[in-house]
Structure formats: C-alpha cells, structure tokens
Amino acid sequence: MVAFICRRLLSGVALVFVVSALTAFLIFAGGMDIARNILGTNATEEQVAQRAAELGLDRPAWQQYADWLGAALTGDLGRSYFSSEPVLQALSTRLPVTLSVVLTAVLVTAVLSAALGVLAAVRRGWVDRFVQLANVVVGAIPNFWLALVLVSVFALNLRLFPATGYVPFLESPAGWLLSITLPVASLVIGGLGAAMIVRSSVIDVLRLDFVRTLRSRGLSQREVLTKHVMRNAAPPFLTVMSLAFIGMFGGAVVIEKVFAIPGVGTLANNAAQRGDVPLVLGVVSVTVAVVVVVNLVIDILNGWLNPKVRVQ
C-alpha cells in the first residue's frame, strides 16, 4: 500500500511539472502582449517595452519558466503582475471557496446516485425504469441553464436563497449552507449519471454466487446489500466519483460566474485573459495538485474497500 501511494504521489508531482510547463508554453507561445495589457490602450511602445523589461517578459520563455519553477519549489509562487497580490494569498482565499462548493456537490452526488442506483437495482420494475428515464432527462440539462432557472425560481421569486454571492462557513454556517445550496444543486445535476453505474454494478454483484450463499444462510436483504454487495460494487462507482470531482471542478468556472462566487475558477479565467502569468501558473499547479490528491484519496478508499486493488 505504501509503495502504491508513493508511486501515485510521484506520478502526481510529475503531472504538476508537465502541466505547468505546458501552461507556460501556451501563454508565451500565444504571443500575448502582457505588458500592453497591464498598461492599457494609451501607453506608448516605449512604456510597454519598459514594463516588459521590468517584468522580465523580454527573456526567452524557457528562462522565465525556469525562474518561476525555481521559486515555486521554494514555496514562492510570486505575485500577480496586475494587483501585486501574492499568488499564495489569492489562492488561499479562493481555493477553499471552490473546494467547499465542489466537495459538497461531490458528496451530495455520491449519496444521491448511490441511493438511486441501489434502489433501481434492487426494486427493478417501474422504479428502475423511472430512475433510468429520469437519468436521461436530467443528464440532458446543462448546468448553467439549470443554475439560471434555480436562481429565478428559488432566489428571485420564492426568496428562499440568495441569488448571488458566497458566505464563508466560519462567518455563518447557516449563511454558508444557503449560499452554496443553489450552486451545489446545479453541479450535482451533471454527476447523477453515476447512479447508472451503481445500478449496473449492483445488479452484476447481486447475480454472483456468493450473494445466493449469503441469502441461504439467512442474512437479511439489508445486511447483504450494505455489508457485501455495495462493498463489491464500489470500485467503478468511486472511479466515476473521482471523474465527477474533476468535471465539477472544471464546471465550477461557469457556476461561479452565474452565482458570482469568488472561487478559483473566476480567478483562473480572469488571470488567463489578462496574461497574469504567475497567477495562471500558480492556479494551474495547485489545481492539478488538488486533483491528484483527491484521486489518491479515492484510490486509497478503493483499496480499503476492496483488498483486490491493493495486491496489483
């Protein structure tokens, strides 16, 4: 298990390097006039050249990346070209916001899709058909559209939730819950397809011989399901959940915009458009690291649930 974790961590670190290098390459190869973006339309060519020199933008791309990497390895992600805000500080205020929305959404998705999937697999008949049909319908709804509808109904008309904004958990737990309810609901909708995975793997496991043996020994349906079937049906479900997490992390960019949530998606989007290199590289690297860690946790969870995984 330890070797497994080490291997995954190492490949994770390599991934961060590769992705940050690719990002840097894309920014510099894009030929964006970053100094011009900082100074605006009225600046003269000399002013632009002067600012570019100040920021070191006139040096070769590889050298700029190497400098960034060297500093980043010592924990210094630099400062934003535009606001001078330390990148770490920007991330520390933005990342928890996005994570609290996305992780809650993943959790809700996991619970809902597991419940629906098991229900469909065990009950079959009209319940199963209904869950399947609902899944197709719900899966076709784009999350930003749903977000707009939810705001219109629950925030503007019924006034149950705030239409926009985010309240930190520490400031007001109740306010936090209310502020993330609609964004989470919009994100969850995209992940409910996992119910179908749960359904099919539970059906598969229910057909196995050991389930019949367990039943013949007098175990209740409930025990068979929770202690044995779900545990065996879990691996594909966990894999889908880790994909859902990545998907929702990306989808958060749109949802953050609709709800004006000060998350990392908005930060990355704005930074990329302006050409705020330190901020873009910082956001990308840390985001990749988060994805790597979450996937690792899910892998470990998988190994704990299913000893077969640990052996490979």
Partner: peptide, 18 residues
C-alpha cells in the same frame, strides 16, 4: 462594492436586493 462579471448575475443581484 461587489464584483459580478456576468451581466445575469449582476442583474439578479440588483433584482434580489443584494
């Protein structure tokens, strides 16, 4: 001052009194 890049979010904030 609250930042709403998206016009829909900005309008919703005004409509809801935020």
């Amino acid at each position: 001052f609250k930042t709403y890049q998206d016009i829909t979010a900005r309008l919703n904030a005004a409509k809801s009194g935020e």
